[in-house]
Each structure stands twice: as C-alpha cells, then as structure tokens.
Design a protein around this nucleic acid. Structure first.
Ligand SMILES: NC(=O)c1ccc[n+]([C@@H]2O[C@H](COP(=O)([O-])OP(=O)(O)OC[C@H]3O[C@@H](n4cnc5c(N)ncnc54)[C@H](O)[C@@H]3O)[C@@H](O)[C@H]2O)c1
Ligand SMILES: NC(=O)c1ccc[n+]([C@@H]2O[C@H](COP(=O)([O-])OP(=O)(O)OC[C@H]3O[C@@H](n4cnc5c(N)ncnc54)[C@H](O)[C@@H]3O)[C@@H](O)[C@H]2O)c1
Lengths: 219, 219
DNA sequence: CGGCATTCGTTAAACAATTAACAATTTAAT
DNA sequence: ATTAAATTGTTAATTGTTTAACGAATGCCG
C-alpha cells in the first residue's frame, strides 16, 4: 500500500470533486463504488482515479470497488477536513457577503468566526449572526478567539496591508481573492483565487475550440 | 520567434495575472517592463514569465524588456478578451447575485445580457438593470439577443438540466459553478469552478506546512 | 470446484510543465 | 571603439503528471 508524503496538487483538487460524489452516494445509501463509476460521474479517467487513491493509500477490493463511507473518511482525513479551523473574513463587500451567505465553510472544516471591515457604515451591523468589527480590532479578536485562518476579500490595493495585519495577529493561512501576490512568512500558507480565471480561460477555450477541427476528446 | 499552437493551461492563468499587472503599469505610465520585474510583482519566476511570453510569440528587447502597452495588447489578443461575448446567468441565488454585482465581466469581454431563474418571486424583478426572466424563455432570448455564453449558478441537482437547456438554445460556452461534471457536445466549452477548491487546498496545505520543517521556498 | 471476467494496486512508459542554461542582442560606460 | 552588464529568445535538463500496462485478488457462474 502506498504511503503519501506529498500529494500532487491536481490530485487534491480531484479529491474534492470525488468527495462531493461520495457524500452523495453515501446519502443515497450506496455501499461500494468502483473507480470506473467514480470516473464516469466526475469526468475523470478511471486510471487517474486509481492513481489518486494510490497516493492516499487506497483500500479497495478487486471486483467490488471501494467502500463509500470508508473512502470518504480517508479523503477527509488526508485533506484534514475534520479538524475545526476558526476563520475570519476581512472585507464585507460584494464578494464577502456572498461568501458569508454560502455553505462552503463547514464542508472543509472552516468556521466563520469574525468579520472585519473599515467602512463605518458596516461596522456594528450583523451579518449571518456575526457582528462586523473594525479591522483595527483584528489582533485582539484573533488572539481571543483562537482564529487561525483569514479570508482577504478587500480591494487589491488593500490586500497586502490586510495580509500583514493577519500575519501580525497570528493567522497561519490566508485565502486571498485580490489579484496580487501576497508576501508572507514561509510558515504562512496563501491560496489565491481569482474569480476571473474562469472567464479568462473560457474566453481562450472558446476561441480555440471554434478553430479546432479535432477538439479534445472527452475522457 | 515561437508560434503558439496551444498554450498550457497554467500559462493562460498566469497571463491573466500578468495582464492585471500590465494594466496597472499602463495606468501608472510605465513604458517598459522586464521579465524580472513582472516576476517580482506577480510571484512567478522570471524564467517562467519568459517561457510564457515565448508561447505568445514575445516581442521584448534585450536589456530593456517588454513594451507594456504592446504586451498587454498581445495578451488580450491571444486570450481573445477584446471580442464582445454576450452572456446569460441562470440561477440568481447567493452566488448569482454576487456575480451580477461584480465587475469581472468586462475585463474578459463578457457582457451580462440576461438573467434566468425558476423562482416566481424573482421573475420580473430587476437586478443590475436586467429583468429576471423565467428559464423557460431561455431559448427565445438567447436566439434573439445572440447570447453565446452562459453561467450556471444553480444547485447541483439542476446543473445538467440547465446545461442541456443552454446547449439547446445554442450557447457555446458554459461557466459552471455546480460541483458536477456536465455532459455537453464536443463543440461546447465548459469551465467548471468549485469555490470550495480554495478552502480544500488551504486545509491540505495547512496540515502539511505545519509538519514540514523545510517548507517550500518562495520562488 | 474451476475457469472467467472484473477490478484493484503497482510499476513503467509517455507526455507535459517547469527550471536551468546560455548564446545573441542591446544599452551604457569607459 | 571596446568592454561590461543586463536581458532576451530558445534549447536542454529536470521534474511532475498522466496514461498505459499487467499480475494478483476477488467474486461469479456453470
Ligand atoms: N465581487 C466579485 O465577484 C469579485 C470578482 C473578482 C475579484 N474580486 C476581488 O475580490 C476583492 C473584493 O471584491 P468585492 O467586489 O467584494 O469588493 P467591494 O469593493 O465590494 O468590497 C470591498 C470591501 O472591503 C472593505 N475594505 C476596503 N479596504 C479595507 C481594509 N483596508 N481593511 C478592511 N476592509 C477594507 C470595503 O469597505 C468593502 O466593504 C477585490 O480584490 C476584487 O478584485 C471580486
Ligand atoms: N454561494 C456560494 O458561495 C457557493 C459556493 C460554492 C459553490 N456554490 C455552488 O453554486 C451554485 C449556486 O449556489 P448558490 O449559493 O447561489 O445557491 P442558491 O440556492 O442561493 O441559488 C440557486 C438559484 O438557482 C435557482 N434555480 C434552482 N433551480 C433552477 C433551475 N432549474 N433553473 C433556473 N434556476 C434555478 C433558484 O431559484 C435560486 O435562485 C450551487 O451549485 C452551489 O453548489 C455556491
């Protein structure tokens, strides 16, 4: 059985997709699922699915497949989705509000515990049951509440300052939505996500797909 | 000079980041920029920057760098960001509202031209100057308005149906936010984007970074 | 019980992307 | 003018990911 030192990033992303399917299967009462079925449903080749599970240290039975509940648990464990991670949001603009209202936090073990902004008209209001505070309070709140992760949903011009504040307060991981490279100490993890990526790649693919007479085969 | 048949996907994503920087430099009045400076600002290695520009068919001058405006134009051209692409949104929930309010469309040449939903309490209301219509009207509207792209911001259970409707109406590209693999004809481009990816990878990285005594060097 | 078909775990080969290297080119300095 | 320093375009080496292959394990069927 394969031991996993570090998993390819692409595998991690696929695990997320796979877990989503597994949870659905679990809800539907399925007990076993094969690599082929997983591939069918998620659009990933069965080979790749098995290779990914190899990285995890897989547990399937030939001819039967993988036990759904057990596999889901393994993925949650490797991705560390079970341990609770208290999180703060900085910047309650359009994006911040959407994130606040969404249900994505708990799936990955994150719990939104504080919201900060600089806008006086927002400070003191309540969103999703959380009181919005002045960003100057971040140091004390993060320490007091033991918050370890932060989301930067502020304009690009304020992103580095926000990151510095977060790092100073002791935050170890930043989910950044501003289109800039954040400079942080080595022991702080940054995951940047530009929402525009999707549109840009779509634009490029559209242009190419129209020209291609032999488009990529679905696999 | 290198001709570009197909650019690596990763390069496309970096182009987006680079373009953001170039536009800022343009606004600041800079005329030239070197690969090293671009790398510095975007967090990409200078080598990779030059390799990416090689794919584009680069135009820099040794010792001087690249002409900012010209390079930006080249990227816009290769990514096809200039041609207008009329787009519709299906599903005006939390995510849909955030997307409607955001300014990401125009940068990539997309124009939000129609909004559809099934919720009677939404149909007929106006958001961002656009009247929300019943999704049953999609066929006629897409034809009449010459809409070529669609955003699926509906629950996972409705995503494939939505995709089928879009394809039936003649849409050639789908930006999908539901965590499912959409089955579409080969000549339709799908770009799926799970917002949870960021959190999942963050979770995995946090776990690994804490354990690592020799964390990845910033490059 | 004994073959047959299926599916897994693993290894190996093919492919793709990143990093490194360097000659060619341009500017600036002496 | 000539040299020195910087930076590009491009090729080569390295690294990483995906695809393919196949023996071993398992269930199924006669
Ligand atoms: N809205 C989107 O869909 C979208 C799409 C792509 C990228 N983004 C990026 O996400 C970020 C936020 O986008 P948005 O649309 O929510 O912006 P927004 O302007 O709606 O909201 C920004 C919020 O941050 C607050 N803020 C500003 N400076 C601050 C500071 N120093 N400290 C704390 N709070 C501060 C503002 O008061 C405001 O509430 C931007 O970097 C943007 O480029 C957003
Ligand atoms: N909100 C987020 O931040 C977030 C995060 C991660 C993933 N997602 C995904 O994005 C999608 C949308 O999320 P959301 O939070 O906006 O959901 P939501 O429930 O807030 O909104 C869904 C909208 O789609 C409409 N709808 C439902 N069925 C439809 C149909 N058949 N045709 C047209 N419209 C229909 C509903 O009326 C509603 O307005 C989901 O697939 C979700 O998994 C959202």
């Amino acid at each position: 059985m394969g031991e996993h030192k570090k998993m390819p990033r692409a595998s991690v992303l696929r695990m997320e997709l796979c877990l989503e399917l597994l949870e659905q299967l679990e809800a539907d009462g399925s007990v076993y699922v094969t690599s082929r079925q997983i591939g069918e449903a998620t659009g990933v080749s069965a080979d790749k699915v098995r290779q990914d599970f190899f990285h995890l240290g897989s547990e399937g039975k030939p001819k039967v497949g993988y036990e759904v509940a057990q596999l889901a648990e393994l993925i949650r464990s490797v991705l560390d989705l079970k341990t609770a991670k208290k999180t703060c949001l900085v910047g309650l603009g359009n994006l911040g509000r959407a994130l606040t209202a969404s249900n994505i936090w708990s799936r990955a073990g994150f719990e939104l515990a504080a919201i900060f902004d600089t806008d006086p008209s927002l400070i003191g209001t309540t969103t999703a049951g959380i009181r919005v505070r002045n960003v100057t309070e971040i140091y004390g709140v993060v320490k007091a509440e033991n918050i370890i992760a932060g989301v930067a949903a502020v304009p690009a011009s304020a992103a580095q300052d926000t990151a510095d504040l977060m790092v100073g307060a002791g935050i170890r991981a930043i989910w950044n939505f501003a289109p800039v490279k954040l400079h942080v100490p080595e022991d702080v993890v940054v995951e940047s996500q530009s929402l525009a990526w999707g549109l840009i790649t779509l634009s490029y693919e559209m242009k190419n797909n129209i020209k291609d007479q032999a488009p990529e085969r679905a696999k």
